[in-house]
Amino acid sequence: MRRVWSWAALIVGGLYFLLPLIGTIEFSLRMRRGEYSLDAYRSVLSDPNFRATFSYSVAMAALTILLGVLIVVPTAYWVRLRLPRLRPVIEFITLLPLVIPAIVVVFGYIRLYNTSSILPLTGTASGTNLLLLCGYATLALPYMYRAVDTGLSTLDVRSLTEAAQSLGAGWARIIVRLILPNVLGAVMSGAFLSFAIVIGEFTMAALLNRPAFGPYMQLLGANRAYEPAALAVIAFAVTWGCMGVMQLISRLFGTRMQAK
C-alpha cells in the first residue's frame, strides 16, 4: 500500500517535471512549418546579440565567483580560527539575501549609488558593471558561504594553521597554499552554483541596464515565438551542466578526503 502511494507521488511529480521539458524541446523544433527542425537553434546561435550577452554573462559569472571566493574564504576561515563567537552573526548576514528580495537590493543600489551620490557608480558603464558584480556576489553569498563553511568543517583549521605557522608560513601563504586547496572541492561546488544563478539572472541586470543574457532572453521572449523555447533548452542544458560538474567535483573531492 505504502509502495503504491510512493510510486503515485513519484510518477505524478515526474510527469510534472518531464512535461515542460518535453514540451519545450518539442516547441523549439517546430519553427519550420510541418516538420521538426533545428532552425530555432540556428537562429538563436547566429544572433550576434546572443553571443554578446551570453559572453557578457559568462564573464560576469566568472568575476562573481572570484569576488565571492575572495570575500568568503578568508572570512569563513578567520571566523573558524579566531572569532567563533561571531559565527551566528556572519551566518545571519549570509542568509539575508534569501530573505531580502533581489529587486529591493538593486533598488537600493540605484538610490544609493546614483549620479548625484558620493559614490556615483551608476554614472559610468564600468561603474555599473562593478555594481552589478557586487549585486551578483550578494546573491551568491548564501550558497558560497555554506559550501565553504561546510568544507572547512571537515578540516581541523586550528591545527593546520598552527602547524603551518610553526614552519614559518605567513597568512597569505596559509590561505592560498593550505586552506584553499583543502576546500577547493567546496569552493568549486559553490562556484558552479553561483554560475548557474548568475548566468540567466534578470532583475538586477535589467534594472541596472546591463547587456546581460537574462534581459536578452526576456526581450527575445517578448518578440519571437520559437527562439525562446530553444533558449530555454539551452539554459536548461547549461544549468544541468553546472550541477553535473558540481556533483562530479564534490564526489571526486569527497572520495579524496575520505582516502586521506
Partner: peptide, 16 residues
C-alpha cells in the same frame, strides 16, 4: 531548483 527566471517562463509557455 536553479532553473528559475526567464527560461522557466518560456518552458511553461511552450507547454501550457
Amino acid at each position: 531548483s536553479n532553473f528559475a527566471g526567464v527560461p522557466l517562463a518560456f518552458a511553461f509557455i511552450a507547454t501550457l
